[in-house]
C-alpha cells in the first residue's frame, strides 16, 4: 500500500528553490534512507513532508490514515531545550498531546503505552529522571520514545545518530531497524551512506542529481558507487 508519494515536487524557502523535480513513493513497511551532502535539502524535504513548510510546486500525497496523527518525528538537533526542566516521562507522554483533544490529562492507557515505549528504548527506570541530565544517546532515545507515542505507522528521523559515539550509534541503528521489522515505515536522513544502505530498502539521493530507487538499483548505479567509494 502506498503511504506517501510525490511527483515532480519542488521544495525550498522564500529565498529560493532548494530541490526540484523530486519524485518518489513509499509503501508501508519501507525503510527509506535519504542521503546526500550537507546543505542539499534533506532536512527541507522532511520538513515539507511534515507540513512545517509548504512545497513550492507540486504536492505530497499522503494516505488518509497518516494525516490524522499518524506521524512520528525525531528532529535533527535538540539544542533549544538544553536547560528545559522536564522528566523523561513528561516528554515521552507529550507524544500523545496532539491526539488527546481538549482533554487536560492523559489516560491510563496512554501512560502505559508511554511506559512500554520507554522500556522498549532501553530506558526503564528513567521515567522520573530529568531530561537535561541525560547523555546525548539517552536523549535521542527519549525523543524516539516520544515519536513512538505519536505514531504506530511512520517515523521520520533527521540524522538520529549525529553526535553519538560509534557504539551508541550502532545501538540506535538496531533500535530503528527493529521498529521497522515491527512494521513501522522508516524515513531516515543519514550522513553515513554505508550504514544507511545496510538497513534501508529504498534510497533517495539528493544532490546535483536526484536518485530514487531500491537499494540494489542504487548500488549498481554509477553515482551510487562513486558516493560510496568517495565516502571511504
Amino acid at each position: 500500500m502506498t503511504q506517501l508519494s510525490c511527483d515532480n515536487l519542488s521544495i525550498g524557502y522564500e529565498t529560493g528553490i532548494v530541490v526540484k523535480d523530486l519524485s518518489f513513493s513509499i509503501d508501508s513497511g519501507d525503510y527509506l534512507a535519504i542521503v546526500g551532502e550537507n546543505g542539499t535539502g534533506k532536512s527541507t524535504l522532511i520538513k515539507t513532508i511534515l507540513g512545517l513548510i509548504k512545497p513550492i510546486k507540486g504536492e505530497i500525497k499522503m494516505d488518509e490514515s497518516l494525516k490524522r496523527n499518524g506521524i512520528g518525528y525525531l528532529p535533527q538537533q535538540t539544542i533549544v531545550q538544553k536547560d528545559f526542566p522536564a522528566s523523561v516521562f513528561e516528554i515521552v507522554l507529550s507524544g500523545f498531546a496532539s491526539i488527546n483533544g481538549f482533554r487536560p490529562f492523559y489516560t491510563k492507557e496512554e501512560k502505559e503505552i508511554a511506559k512500554a515505549n520507554i522500556n522498549k528504548m532501553g530506558l526503564s527506570g528513567y521515567e522520573k529522571y530529568p531530561y537535561k541530565e541525560l547523555s546525548g544517546g539517552q536523549m535521542q532515545r527519549v525523543l524516539l520514545s516520544r515519536a513512538l507515542c505519536s505514531t504506530t505507522k511512520i517515523l521520520l528521523l533527521d540524522e538520529p545518530v549525529s553526535g553519538l559515539d560509534p557504539i551508541v550509534t550502532q545501538e540506535m541503528y538496531e533500535l530503528i531497524n527493529n521498529l521497522n521489522k515491527e512494521g513501522i515505515t522508516i524515513i531516515m536522513i543519514s550522513h553515513d551512506v554505508k550504514e544507511a544502505v545496510k538497513y534501508a530498502n529504498k534510497i533517495l539521493h539528493i544532490g546535483n542529481k536526484v536518485f530514487f530507487g531500491t537499494k540494489t538499483e542504487y548500488l549498481n548505479s554509477d553515482f551510487g558507487k562513486i558516493f560510496i567509494d568517495g565516502g571511504k
Binding site: 507540513g51 528532529p75 498531546a97 496532539s98 515519536a147 521520520l156
Partner: peptide
C-alpha cells in the same frame, strides 16, 4: 516543530 508536525 514536533508539536506542529504531529498535528497540534
Amino acid at each position: 516543530n514536533f508539536s506542529k508536525a504531529t498535528g497540534i
